[in-house]
């Protein structure tokens, strides 16, 4: 009986050791998108010469940014150039930055993924950019420019979750998303976080078309090359949620849309 117990324990230990050979950080990044991107193989989506432009404004006094205490990692204290939260990036004229503006409804057909690689950099223990968009199948290159280690943990609701370590400065990996995921029912887009440095977070909106943009501090945006038509334009902010507006734009014309967010 004692021998049998011993061998059971030895077997369990062997399983644990075998697990060591399956270290996740040793596994090269694997695309989660089939060859040719994830867009459906139906009619090709149209492009055009119309534009939807406008601005995002924050009304009232924005909450003051908070100072992030980075002293859990001395490297971050040394490297950080910005230690303030970026929930509310408000420009001089009240423009609101880090708002993801996109065509929510009105497009038809499929659009192939852009060949442009989007870079998400970890620098100064922050993600740059903080809010951005990609197309289904478009490559996101995630880079660690910091001389400290980060883990990149994406927690999507629709796409596959991943959590990968980048312990060495200069490490880079590529990821793609195979399904649309952007502010479903007002919930966040795909959140990225670093579990090592709890203050680091970013959001990516995944769309099956190229008509999206993230605002800068002036709050202005332009979505060009649209075919004429009726659209629902959405503006999403990580703290203030999503607003939508209907807009009609003629061929070669520019339609103006403005959104106003208020705190609380």
């Amino acid at each position: 009986m004692r021998h049998r117990t011993f061998w059971i324990l030895v077997s369990l230990a062997a399983i644990a050791v075998a697990g060591a050979c399956n270290s996740r950080s040793d596994v090269p990044p694997v695309s989660i998108v089939p060859e040719g991107g994830g867009a459906a193989a139906n009619a090709v989506g149209a492009t055009g010469t119309s534009t939807v432009s406008g601005s995002i404004t924050f009304e009232g006094e924005p909450p003051a940014p908070e100072t992030i205490r980075m002293n859990s990692d001395p490297v971050c204290v040394k490297e950080a150039t910005n230690t303030e939260t970026e929930y509310y990036v408000v420009g001089d004229g009240g423009g609101l930055g880090n708002v993801f503006v996109y065509v929510k409804e009105g497009l038809s057909g499929s659009y192939s993924a852009s060949g442009e690689t989007i870079v998400l950099d970890q620098q100064g223990c922050r993600y740059t950019p903080h809010v951005f968009g990609v197309q289904v199948g478009q490559t996101v290159q995630i880079t660690n420019s910091d001389p400290t280690l980060h883990n990149i943990h994406a927690t999507p609701a629709v796409n596959a979750e991943f959590n990968t370590g980048q312990p060495i400065q200069g490490m880079s990996m590529e990821r793609t998303f195979d399904q649309v995921e952007v502010a479903p029912d007002g919930s966040p887009m795909v959140p990225f976080k670093c579990d090592v440095h709890g203050w680091m977070n970013a959001y990516v909106g995944v769309l099956d078309h190229p008509y999206f943009v993230t605002t800068g501090p002036d709050g202005a945006f332009d979505i060009g090359n649209l075919p004429a038509g009726n659209y629902v334009i959405a503006a999403w902010h990580e703290m203030l949620g999503e607003q939508t507006q209907n807009v009609t734009v003629g061929d070669g014309a520019t339609a103006n849309v403005s959104f106003t967010f208020t705190a609380g």
């Binding site: 060591a20 950080s25 040793d26 312990p167 090592v196």
Partner: peptide
């Protein structure tokens, strides 16, 4: 309590190191 459960993404290694 600190939300650190996934701060080391691999196991049993730690960031690829024994």
């Amino acid at each position: 309590s600190t939300g650190s459960g996934l701060a080391v993404p691999d196991w049993p290694n730690t960031y690829g190191t024994f």
